Computed example of a mutant assay.
Amino acid sequence: MSVRALVVDPSAAAAVRLAEVADPVPGPGQVLVDVSHASLNYGDLNDARSGRVPVGAVLGSDAAGVVVRAAADGTGPAVGTQVVALTSGAFAERVAIDVGALAEVPHGLAPAHAVALPVAGVAALRSLRAAGLGPDKRVLITGASGGVGRFAVQLAARAGAHVIASVGSTARGKGLVELGADEVLIGLEGLDRSVDVVIDSVGGPQLVEAWNLLAPGGSVQSVGWTSGQPAVFPPYATVGPARSLTSFVIEGAAGADLAVLTDLAARGALTAEIGWQGSWSRFAEAAEALRGRRVPGKAVLNVSRDER
């Protein structure tokens, strides 16, 4: 048997095409999930072109759907459970998923909103945690209008921090005050006080600017590099009171953190904004909108079985 999936193909639009792949065979500690929704991340677009995901392999990390086969070892959710997961090869009609990589979707949380949480939400949660978030901190979030940024704004505000959201334009800053930002800036214009934490997804010259604003003992977490530009530090920029610039990647099972995020979202304490939603057959359109920074929040793909 086979299922449809979005696979890497350098000759296709956005380097991705719909194709038939082998039906997944779950291991003892995996459940089999029929996927209804997937969420597109900026990193997925890079994975499709960088070679990190091989040609012909299934792309994606964020999936939501229903368990159709429970784990053989007796762990994890039962058949019929709605789940959301952070797993490789997520962009397929059916996916085998480690039980530690998923969380049950609470009642009242729509799958389309749950699927917006895995990569972006876990990255925001873990990077803030690693940076030492606290109620007395000044937190700068660059690229604050994107998926990671919007979650980071909300989570930092919930922790009682003073949140400074940096965006590329006035239009991109819409709604961030309502999410908890104390200040919304175009770039870093007007920011003349030091900050304790930086969650940076822009990279390039803005990363250098943010580093220069960091207070002694502060931390920059580099979670992305959407600018595509080099970051050139002037001589002695890294000499002085102790500060840290830390590269960030999601490692290890995300299930526990996903449970935290889905609970917050179900209670209305965390908003997963969907800026684009459509059939996965429109992947190239979604990718173009995401690269063009025309998607506030997340882009969600509907995995349709009616388009064969």
Rank of each mutant, 00 (worst) to 15 (best):
G51P: 01
G51S: 03
G51K: 10
R52N: 14
V53Y: 10
P54W: 13
V55Y: 08
V55P: 00
G56I: 08
A57Q: 13
L59N: 00
G60D: 05
D62F: 06
A64L: 08
A64K: 05
G65W: 02
G65D: 06
V66M: 10
R69E: 15
R69G: 02
A70W: 00
A71H: 05
A72D: 14
A72W: 01
D73A: 09
D73H: 05
G74F: 02
G74T: 02
T75H: 14
T75K: 07
G76T: 02
P77C: 06
P77G: 08
V79S: 09
V79Y: 01
G80N: 03
T81A: 13
Q82V: 13
Q82K: 14
V83L: 06
V84C: 12
A85P: 04
A85T: 04
A85D: 03
L86Q: 15
T87Y: 08
T87V: 15
S88V: 15
S88Y: 11
G89H: 11
G89D: 10
G89T: 07
A90R: 11
A90S: 04
F91I: 01
A92E: 11
E93V: 07
R94Y: 09
I97F: 09
D98S: 14
D98F: 01
V99N: 03
V99L: 08
G100M: 06
A101S: 14
L102G: 00
A103C: 04
V105G: 01
P106T: 02
P106A: 01
P106Q: 00
H107M: 12
H107F: 14
G108E: 05
A110W: 00
A110V: 10
A110M: 05
A110D: 15
P111Y: 02
A112Y: 09
A112D: 14
A112P: 03
H113M: 07
H113W: 06
V115M: 01
V115Y: 05
V115N: 00
V115E: 08
A116M: 02
A116P: 00
L117Q: 01
L117M: 14
L117S: 05
P118E: 05
V119Y: 14
A120I: 01
A120Q: 08
G121H: 06
G121C: 00
G121I: 00
A123Y: 08
A124L: 04
A124F: 03
S127M: 10
R129Y: 11
R129H: 15
A130H: 15
A130F: 13
G132T: 10
G134D: 14
G134W: 11
P135I: 04
D136P: 07
D136R: 13
R138A: 13
V139E: 04
V139R: 10
L140M: 11
I141T: 11
G143M: 13
A144I: 10
A144P: 01
A144G: 10
S145K: 09
S145A: 15
G146N: 06
G146W: 09
G147H: 06
G147R: 04
G147N: 04
G147W: 07
R150D: 02
F151G: 08
F151C: 13
A152C: 05
A152S: 07
V153D: 04
Q154P: 01
Q154S: 06
A156H: 07
A157L: 01
R158V: 05
A161Y: 07
A161K: 12
V163D: 06
V163S: 11
I164G: 10
S166V: 11
S166H: 06
V167N: 10
G168H: 12
G168S: 12
S169H: 04
T170S: 13
